[in-house]
Amino acid sequence: MLMSVGSLAAMGLALGSVLGVASRYLAVEENPIEAELQAMLPGSQCGQCGYVGCAQAAAALAKGEAPVTLCPPGGKATAEALAAKLGVKVDLSKVSDSGPQIAEVTEEICIGCCRCMKVCPTDAIIGAAKQIHNVIREACTGCSSCVDVCPTEALGMMPIPVTLQHWTWPKPASAHN
């Protein structure tokens, strides 16, 4: 009895101390992954993911509380990059990548209230009070914040128009035979 207790205790002590020493020598400085994740997010702080901003979303991602598919403006590409970084698998077919979208002003209804300009995270809407506003396509991130504040529903989202340069061949239909 004493022997068995003693031997087990001794072994535990010995192995424990070996591991203790090892942990000192093999210590790794945990790389704060949060910063890296934040760098991958668009940074427009649009809040579509449900978090206040991209930094908070990155923190949630790092803790594993949020799915990598959380960022609608980032689309598939961002989800893929995040998944690769976090080493998780992701079913990208679920990501609603209706193609990146951008906002568009219906000029007939715009009253030039300037509300959309104020909420736009990237200053992509130009115009002045009582003037019809316009969206700079290249700068719009498709966060749709402006759509929510527009009092006349003059703002809507539309897919980025396909151009000759952006057109790609569709995937061949896989014949099952």
């Binding site: 087990l8 072994m11 535990g12 192995l15 424990g16 070996v18 591991l19 090892a22 942990s23 093999l26």
Partner: peptide, 13 residues
Amino acid sequence: LIIASAVQFTEMT
């Protein structure tokens, strides 16, 4: 006990 220690060590490495 021994295996667990070896695994711990491997994990750290």
